[in-house]
Structures are given as C-alpha cells and as structure tokens.
C-alpha cells in the first residue's frame, strides 16, 4: 500500500513537472467555439488512437454533438486547429481542462512544495534551537508555536492574505502566499523537532562533539537536525496536501492566483455556479486530483492497523 502510494505521488509530481511537454495545449489557449465542450473519448481506429470531433449543436445551451463520420488524431500526434481534442472537456473559456490540470498541478504543487520546504526549514531550525538551548528560548518559541497551532489555519491564512492588496500580479501572489503558508506551518514541524532534539542533546555523541569543541551551529546542522530526518519527512508529507488545499481555498474565494493562471483553485472557482457544475461536471477535475493527492499522502503516512483476533 505504502509503496503504491509513494509511486502515485511521484507520478503526480512528475506529471506536474513535465506539464509543458505533456499538456496538449497551453494553459491559456482558448477555443471560442468550444465553450464547455464535453470530454471526448478516444478509441482505436486500427492501431492509432483517434477521437470523433465535436460539432456545436446549440451555442446558447452549450450543447455539442459527436460527428461520428470524422476522426481526428490525438493532439500529441497531430494538431487540427479547427477540431481541438478535449480529453477531459473544456472550461467556460473553451480551454482544455486536461492541459490546465497539468499546468495547474505545476502551480499548485509547486507552491505547496516551496512552502513545505520553507516551513520544514524554519520549523526545524526554530525547534532545534529551542530544544538545544532550553530555558527561556525554549519557552518563548514553544509558546508562540502553541499559540499559532491553536488558531484555525484557514482563518489565519485568510486574514493575512486579505490585509494585503486584494488584486496582485501572479508572481507576487506566489511569493506572498508561500510566505504566509510558511508562517502558519512552521509550528507543526518545530514542536516535533524540539521534542526530539531535547532528548537527543543528552546523548553521548552530542556530548562528545561538544567536548571536541564543536559549536552549537555545527552540532545542530550536522547531528541534531539530521536526527530528526524521519520526523521531518513525515511532517513534509503531511504539510504538502494541507498547503495544496489552502491554495485551492484561497484561489477559490478569489484571493489566490488571478485568471488566466492555471491553478487547481482557480479552476475550481468556476464551480461556485451550481448549475454549471451540474451540467458540466468535468470542470470538477481538479477536485478529483486534489483528492488523489490527499489519498496518496494518507496512504503513505497511515499506520498498519493492529490485527485483532
């Protein structure tokens, strides 16, 4: 199970990374005649996969019909500008959902990764220093961490984001939001690291290093923090889906990335229209993707249950 989950996660990460090469269309490429086009099912014509193209039946109702008389090759093989292939359907601007899903993965997972790295780094440093030093530094850092932990995450993120200018360019959004996530995420890491370091610092190898004249920084960097390696990895796997969700929520309410940047949250923002979601369910594809990621991370970190008689 765990192995399968790890494979699924790595695969998703790879898809995200290779988006510019895997995605059949650009994130912002819009086909004005194909708004809300449904997913097109590929089938085999001899040995090559083909798709029946769609023809507009009613523009106002955004209804399409399958033209069974013609076939179009998949966009990786051959592109036809007049007959785009939407394997996962198109959104309300006529943009390919599959391509936006892949590019969106890049944005959302990218942001979450950056934030996770930041939170892990700062959390590890803060926790290790607290655990190593003890005393009032330990008290102070842990009090702050406790305080942040008590607060509901989304509210803190919301307030911090909302007091900044409401409409910002995408690169600024990326930076600011990742910093907000780091601010909210470091206590999770810090508490665990502090606990481990507080125990480890009394071990012989640390005392040996100290007697050899190693400074605190060296001891932290070379011995203590690596001792937390397992814990850090677990925390990172827990933080990642949380940050993906937080970005999705922010973009959903309009405080995240602006259109036309593809991120899973901005793609879901159109789902505020209940009727559109009911008629065009493929626009909920990012929700499934997020579910897949959360599921994989849960599988990865779940303990096998104790068997009973």
């Amino acid at each position: 199970m765990t192995r399968r989950a790890a494979i699924m996660l790595v695969a998703l990460a790879l898809f995200a990374l290779l988006a510019p090469w895997l995605a059949p269309y650009q994130a912002g490429e819009a086909f004005s005649g194909f708004l809300h086009a449904p997913p097109m099912r590929p089938h085999l014509d001899g040995l090559s996969p083909v798709v029946h193209p769609l023809v507009l039946a009613d523009r106002l109702e955004q209804r399409f019909e399958i033209d069974s008389s013609r076939t179009v090759k998949l966009p990786w093989i051959e592109r036809d500008a007049a007959a785009p292939v939407f394997l996962l359907g198109a959104d309300d601007f006529g943009r390919d959902v599959l391509s936006r899903l892949l590019y969106g993965a890049r944005t959302s997972i990218g942001l979450a990764l950056v934030a996770t790295l930041g939170a892990v780094l700062i959390g590890a440093l803060a926790g290790a220093w607290a655990g190593y030093r003890g005393g009032w530094i330990d008290e102070a850092i842990m009090r702050v961490a406790d305080f942040v932990l008590v607060l509901p995450v989304i509210y803190v993120v919301l307030v911090l984001r909302a007091v900044l200018p409401l409409v910002l360019p995408p690169s600024t959004v990326f930076l600011l939001v990742s910093w907000i996530f780091v601010l909210v995420g470091w206590p999770f890491v810090a508490k665990g690291v502090r606990a481990i370091v507080a125990v480890e610092r009394n071990r012989e190898y640390v005392q040996a290093a100290q007697s050899l004249g190693a400074g605190p920084l060296r001891i932290l960097a070379v011995h203590l923090i690596p001792a937390c390696g397992g814990h850090l990895l677990v925390q990172a796997t827990l933080l990642l889906p949380a940050f993906i969700l937080a970005e999705a929520t922010l973009s959903f309410i309009g405080l995240g990335f602006p259109d036309p940047i593809a991120s899973w949250g901005t793609m879901l923002a159109g789902a505020g229209n209940y009727n559109a979601v009911a008629r065009f369910p493929w626009t909920l594809a990012p929700a499934v993707a997020i579910f897949a990621i959360v599921l994989s991370t849960n599988l990865l970190t779940s303990q096998p249950s104790p068997r009973n008689r």
Binding site: A271, P281, L284, I290
Partner: peptide
C-alpha cells in the same frame, strides 16, 4: 482524504 472543500463541492454537485 475528502477535505471539506472537496466534500462540499462533490455534495453540491
């Protein structure tokens, strides 16, 4: 694995 965001969207659908 179904956080409130996903769950509420699915249920609304």
């Amino acid at each position: 694995s179904v956080p409130p965001l996903i769950g509420s969207l699915a249920l609304v659908f």
